[in-house]
Design a protein around this nucleic acid. Sequence first.
DNA 1: ATGTCC
Length: 380
Amino acid sequence: MGNPILGEQSAARARISPFYSSQAWIEGRAEDQLAQVAAWPGMAAVAGFPDLHPGRFGPVGAAFLADRIWPQLVGPDIGCGMALWRLDLPRHRLKIDKAVRRLAVLDRGADPDEAASAWAAAGLEGVIGAEGLGSIGGGNHFCELQAVEEAVPEATTLRPGDLCLLVHSGSRGRGAQIFEGLDVSWKQGYAADSAAGQRYLALHDAAMAWARLNRALIAGLAAEALSCAASLICDTVHNQVVARDGLWLHRKGAAGADRGLVPLAGSRDAPSYLMSVTDSVPEALGSVSHGAGRRYDRASMHGRVRKTKSDLAALTRNRFGGRVVCEDRDLLMEEAGPAYKNPEAVMRDLSDLGLARPIARLVPLITFKSAGKAIAGEAE
DNA sequence: ATGTCC
């Protein structure tokens, strides 16, 4: 800024507002990416959250306000989000082994006819198809049964001993297809009023609706498997672009802070939080963390996890007496607890910086990814 | 991220 040589570059770069403390686990590479994106044309403001980590097209755990639309700042999983549901099944009535077996039906996904008619109600069949609705997918996606351990009674109806479902999924192949099918001009960003920009927005909005319905169908399948009802507490998207202040706000691994409640996913071996959030800090761009954030990338987790039979078996249990259902050996290692930052530290930073306060703490009892043939065959 | 790439 005061530097006569770098002065011009600094002037061209958008302001970056970091929302994390000096103790936060933030890779230098993630901050480098943040600075690079801040220098893209038309960038007005950038916010980084304590779950910030490097991503393929830009950092994850950040929000970007620009005069144009940058599809790579949303990424392939358009509309990906976290939905939290309360179950009318108390923890003391839960039999974990039985629940694990019953949840294997999630592998099959939603009934295609039911999915198609639910999607038809949205009126978007002409834009993208219903195929695949009601499926969790891979990567960091999951359907997790959680128990409320602590709650602020004045702020939530959740009480210790209640069970919840946290569903993390997105637009699956639909979003990926939209992203890969984009015209090359997206590399300079789209003007919102251009034909390409309008087309992207229409597809983006359809993918958002698809992803939201996908999460609802997954929760419905899980509740049915557990013979109980699920009621929605909140559903928050963290990969999206929305109009804000006459500009375009991109959220990449950052949830909207304008809907009151946001889940902060921990990991399969650490608690999650339900947060009360406010859009009162302008530099945060109406956004907040959606999870603990990756500490180690997928590739390096293979070297960090021991691969003996007993070590791998240990990865299917957690410190809360819970279970991990994941037939995919690679994913079992890549998504192990140590792959994620400490959610408590992320929560503390958000709280200290005035972006959110915890109103419930939830521990993972069953983290479901995929059952595979072995367990699916056991299911009654 | 991907009815995923060898």
